[in-house]
Design a binder for these strands. Sequence first.
RNA 1: GCCGAGGUAGCAAAGUGGCUAUGCGUCAGACUGCAGAUCUGAUGACGGGGGUUCAAAUCCCUCCCUCGGCUCCA
Length: 460
Amino acid sequence: MTIKVYNTLSRKKEEFIPRDKKVRIYVCGLTPYDYAHLGHAKTYVAFDVIIRYLEYRGYEVFHVQNVTDVEDKLIKRSKELQKNPLEIADFFFKDALKDFDRLNIKRASIYPKVSDHIEDIINFISRLIEKGYAYESNGNVYFEVKKFKDYGKLSHQSIKDIISGARVSIDENKRDPVDFALWKKAKEGEIFWDSPWGKGRPGWHIECSVMSTKYLGVPLDIHGGAIELAFPHHENEIAQSEAYYDKKFVRYWLHTGVLTVNGEKMSKSLGNFITVKDLLKKYNPMVIRLYLASIYYRSRADFSEENLESAKNSLERIYNAKRKLDEALKNPGDGSSLGDTVKRVKENFEAAMDDDFNTPKALAAYYDLVKEINRSADSASESQLLEAKKLFEDIGNVFGILMEEKKGDLEEKLIQLIVDIRDELRKRKDFEMSDKIRAKLREIGIVLEDGEKTTWKKSL
RNA sequence: GCCGAGGUAGCAAAGUGGCUAUGCGUCAGACUGCAGAUCUGAUGACGGGGGUUCAAAUCCCUCCCUCGGCUCCA
């Protein structure tokens, strides 16, 4: 069985065959000029699940994610705040990483910054000028789009179509309106570096071509990002990189669908964005994670609290099964058909994920396992339970949803003490008081479940 | 205007010619002192119209609607 991935370039699902066992993946990272929002989280969770699945499949993954710390928005922000743009970028980048850590998003292998690669960028641009793909004009350097014959192959548009979009800015320095900047001349008071063309800074796009190929070689196996970046950003990356290397830049282009709120794209310019930080105040990180991971990565999704509530209840269900499994392992039985289910679920899970990382379908398989655990764990044999536990954890880890917050030792002891005392009351049939205790505990997020033995858990 | 994605039950969301998707919700039953959890069952769907076919959510035509890109964006 091989994995199939939908390649934006061919608009088809293709067999995924990396250069070797080490998959080289580049995911477009942040321009950190503000707090990370849920749209960012959607994309990074999506690629995190993809990476985790590749690892599950036995690949080693080398993952590069850029940090665009030199960019127009940051410069604008630095003027507003009267601060160094690199410091602003550093602050928001570190902050975003903390948010992403809580969402259990694995860190990339490396996070190269534009400001650390100015020399590489200058060399790259110089070479493009030498090769006749770029030209200097009044302290700026532009890529001459017409020189690159394949321009438009990713977004499947001709140069003519792009121009007729009529929103291409006319700039007298450019030979053609579709040309884009590789190097921008610095204005008074702006951050700059010296270059053969004077004081200035890199344009947007070029950093990704330079840093991705520097750390991953050419071609990259996977280049990922949100679909909104396909044009012009990724189109321009292809032009620069293939002009430079004279060979294919990326083998598989993977794009995530955008997140909308009330039907509109979540973006800073619309002011409708929800920061990860704010949402984390209200919801358990694993709830947010499950919500995001359950979206098929290529799909758009409309955010609502209702969806999060639904994810919360689903996650409760998953965690309940986990507890059930652990309980059953303390006192295994000698039978049940759990083993058959495990085999079937594993197959279904893998088939779903192999088919372009179809997480909704893969989750359906997971719920099959959850149901069967609830149904038959009590009578299952130890070996069956261990098999089930292994699969339960393997799948849960691909989704990245099993990072439960640790209970404090003291907390644990105190609650158990209350439960024991309440048990005494129940034996005396003082249900009024024991119900009151249960209700009060629930108010502070501790859920008691009376069965043969009373158990407790924290609500999500 | 051009390019792309989509419209599936109360909500979310797979499926893409014949086989119960799934989760949340709601209702009922079992279990329980009750509640919860869990199980069992029920509930209910393929945007409108036309066509192809023994058979269409799935293929074709047509119309309507939504979202994304074409401008900074994950």
